[in-house]
Design a protein around this nucleic acid. Structure first.
Length: 569
RNA sequence: GUCCCAGUAGCUCAGCUGGAUAGAGCAACAGCCUUCUAAGCUGUGGGUCGGGGGUUCGAAUCCCUCCUGGGACGCCA
């Protein structure tokens, strides 16, 4: 059967009316209550031209729709309600999932196109905080989603390994640093120095100048400065890679800010060549008043470069190397102006691809309603949070499933999954008030809930001797257990997976997928509580096929948002 | 002061390209394990969708305005 029943519905209505197919398509909705059918078309719009009541129009249209993928089409007040033929649709959906498995939901929208995604990008010598978690998990999820949409996704970790902060750190190290301490606990010690610097600088403002001088030395290739920089960077990377391993996130490139050092001259020359640079208070800037933005600082009055200079250079480099059709920057909302400036400068330089640069902003983690600040040492370390959630997962396993084989691995998957899911489940622009208590919740709309549902389903498949590798396909359904109201909602949900993927990509919002997995889990748990899957031999294979389809979709969905799906827990 | 984001149940949020009685989860209370993993399921209570205007047959959803909270506004990133 034609699985695009919405298309069939729209076509049927199109034959009856003068309005365009696209408009009909837009008007078609899903009724609020399942009892009202699966698809609905409101007739208000036609009332004017037809000079009839919406209700009588609905009546007329309903009668004319006789396509056999609908078991019933009826008018309900001003709406035409379509009821999809459940059995044939169910068989089609299940067979497709059984056949496509891990490829189910894959799209080809992005075939042949490259998308570069700039995310995570922690600052060297600073601890990996909860703040970085957001960029990291959102960026990773978007990469997965883009890939599912057929794009070639290039994951770039634009490390914060250059900038005045290093000057500050060097100044601090020269004043109060202890080499042995740094070797023992690199990030913790460097961070202490960094925090001390800012405290001292409030009393002795000349420290700020000192920091700037050290950074200038670094840019000029001073050997001591370069030595310190290399050392700080190396130690930091070691610790970051532990976190990325735990989160199971990898990158295609670690070309950070320092990577563009020797390439910035060219950028500045280009800007000069196009007469875009002007001097303002000793600094060189690109004026952006014509697009209502503050000027973009390219060069400081001491000649050193800035954030924007590096981002411009990186953009040029990436376009040249990857020929991206889209470039995403998964960076906090507070940097919106910066990206508007960078994109505006690229536009002024005449690059047509400037329009395919997209800043993907997100809300911040707040602490007591305020932004966390690394400068003031007010941070929560991701590592500590993960330790807590993993420990709780361990406790849960000990209590609920003490005979589980690979306890440690599962605890890790659940603990980490809880943190990732908690971060991704809400609309990304929302601020998140940090609450360890909430991260440690494993019930309700949480990662562990979805994982648990998956594990439960897997357990049934195992007990039912479901053979994943068989080429089983459904022809017809023998019992009503796979076409009752609960399973029907489940089938429709499973069917909508690729739509959800597409939406998540269009809106660049992984929360769409996270919410979707919860919906599937909820729906399955409801079915599970009502229908005994294994106890009756009649229709067993059909019910197992449905359960298997659920595991496929849950696994694919979780994979997109970067959450593991343990088979038992 | 200017600009950006948000404001929906006690709490955390969904719904927002306009449509049928505004939905979940948590917390509270009440049920459900001799039967497929109770990290589950079922039920009860709980809402002037921040306020006020406007557009429309119809507004939580679009427009205007005000209020509240968060963030950003030149040599940090």
């Amino acid at each position: 059967m034609n699985m695009n029943v919405k298309e069939v519905f729209a076509q049927a209505i199109y034959k009856q009316t003068e309005i365009s197919l696209e408009q009909i398509y837009r008007l078609i909705e899903v009724p609020k209550h399942p009892s009202l059918g699966d698809l609905a078309f409101p007739c208000f719009l036609l009332a004017k031209t037809w000079k009839k009541s919406p209700a009588s129009i609905a009546e007329q249209i309903a009668q004319s729709i006789t396509e056999d993928c609908f078991s019933k089409v009826e008018a309900n007040g001003p709406y035409v309600n379509g009821f999809i033929h459940r059995e044939s649709f169910t068989i089609s959906v299940l067979n497709q999932i059984l056949y496509e498995r891990e490829n189910y939901g894959t799209l080809s929208d992005g075939a042949g196109k490259t998308i570069v995604i700039d995310f995570s990008s922690p600052n060297i010598a600073k601890p990996f905080s909860m703040g970085h978690l957001r960029s990291t998990v959102i960026g990773n999820a978007l990469s997965n989603i883009a890939q599912k949409c057929g794009y070639n996704a290039v994951k770039i970790n634009h490390l914060g390994d250059w900038g005045t902060q290093f000057g500050k750190l060097m100044a601090a190290f020269k004043h109060w640093g202890d080499e042995d301490k740094v070797r023992k606990q690199p990030i913790a010690e460097l961070f202490t120095l960094y925090t001390k610097f800012h405290e001292e600088a409030e009393i002795h403002p000349q420290l700020i100048d000192e920091g700037r001088q050290w950074f200038k030395k670094l840019e000029d290739g001073d050997s001591e400065a370069v030595y310190l920089w290399k050392w700080f960077r190396e130690e930091s990377l070691k610790e970051f890679s532990k976190i990325y391993q735990l989160l199971n996130i990898s990158f295609d490139s670690f070309a950070g800010e320092a990577f563009y050092n020797d390439k910035m001259g060219e950028t500045i020359e280009k800007l000069q060549g196009q007469n875009l640079l002007e001097v303002s208070d000793g600094a060189e800037v690109v004026d952006l008043t014509d697009v209502s933005l503050p000027p973009c600082l390219i060069k400081k009055s001491d000649g050193a470069t800035l954030y924007a200079t590096r981002d411009l250079t990186a953009a040029l480099y990436r376009q040249e190397h990857y020929q991206f059709s889209k470039a995403l920057y998964v960076v906090g909302h507070e940097q919106s102006v910066h990206f508007q400036q960078v994109f505006a400068v690229l536009e002024k330089m005449g690059y047509p691809w400037a329009k395919s640069m997209i800043h993907v902003p997100f809300g911040l983690y707040l602490q007591n309603g305020k932004k966390m600040s690394t400068r003031k040492g007010r941070v929560i370390l991701l590592e500590n949070v993960l330790q807590e959630t993993i420990r709780l997962a361990e406790q849960n396993i000990e209590q609920k499933n003490p005979t589980l084989e690979n306890k440690k691995e599962v605890a890790k998957q659940v603990g980490v999954g809880a943190v990732i899911f908690h971060d991704l489940k809400n609309y990304r622009m929302n601020n998140i008030e940090f609450s360890l208590e909430q991260m440690l919740t494993f019930e309700g709309e949480t990662g562990p809930y979805v994982q648990y549902t998956f594990a439960r389903a897997c357990s049934i498949l195992q007990k039912g001797n479901w053979n994943i590798n068989s080429n089983f396909s459904l022809k017809k359904l023998a019992t009503n257990d796979v076409v009752n109201d609960d399973s029907w909602e489940l089938i429709k949900l499973l069917f909508s997976f690729s739509n959800q993927v597409q939406q998540a990509f269009i809106q660049l919002d992984p929360s769409i997928i996270a919410k979707y997995t919860v919906d599937v889990a909820k729906c399955f748990n409801k079915y599970y509580s009502k229908v005994k899957i294994l106890t009756n031999n009649n229709g067993l294979q059909e019910r197992l096929a449905l359960v298997y389809a659920v595991t496929v979709v849950l696994k694919n969905g979780l994979q997109l948002i970067g959450v593991d799906a343990p088979k038992s827990m």
